[in-house]
Amino acid sequence: MTTRTQPAEGEWVAHMRRIRDDADTAAFAELFGHFAPRVKGFLMRSGADETLAEECTQEVMATLWRKSALFDPARASVATWIFTIARNRRIDALRRQRRPEPEDLHWGPEPERDQEDVIALQQESEVLARALAELPEKQRLLIERAYFGDLTHSEIAAETGLPLGTIKSRIRLALERLRHAMSRGGE
């Protein structure tokens, strides 16, 4: 891993605008360079082999381009939005299931949201990322595995030797800590 500084969330939001408004391939290339390897890593942790993960990642990034008008920076960070696209691709390609989606809150594109909402969400995303990184390792690993979907609860129980109840309470504790960090605004 290199240690060069990554663009902050606000810059990724600006990249998304350039893709949406100007079909800006340079902005897309930068976003691709940052997120595609993470999506690929995520899909491989979820059980895809490298060929399938590579193929699905390209499809996820193509979906990002095509659906860029639907991205709402007041409701989700760029990473969260990409996560939902990658998750849906995983359900479709790896589990071969449909995913029932909730009704959307609004119909059609919205006028630009209040800039304050967008900035507040970016700050919260950064606090959340820090809080996740600072969790005790055992709790953080369980949260990650729950999202990678690499193992079910009972498989984690078999592998770690921890009873299911302990795993569930560790995840609950991790969520409590994340909530606490969020309510303090990352002090």
Binding site: M1, T25, F28, A29, F32, G33, A36, P37, R38, V39, K40, G41, F42, M44, R45, E50, A53, E54, T57, Q58, E59, M61, A62, W65, R66, A76, S77, A79, T80, W81, I82, F83, T84, A86, R87, E124, S125, L128, A129, L132, A133, I143, E144, Y147, F148, L178
Partner: peptide
């Protein structure tokens, strides 16, 4: 979902194939 975004943002990277950006642009 935001927790999922944070997990993805912190996920270990796996290098993409060397022509993957061009292949994605072709897909688009």
């Amino acid at each position: 979902e935001a927790v999922g975004g944070a997990v993805l943002a912190g996920a270990d990277s796996v290098a993409m194939g060397k022509d993957s950006l061009a292949a994605t642009m072709a897909l688009i």
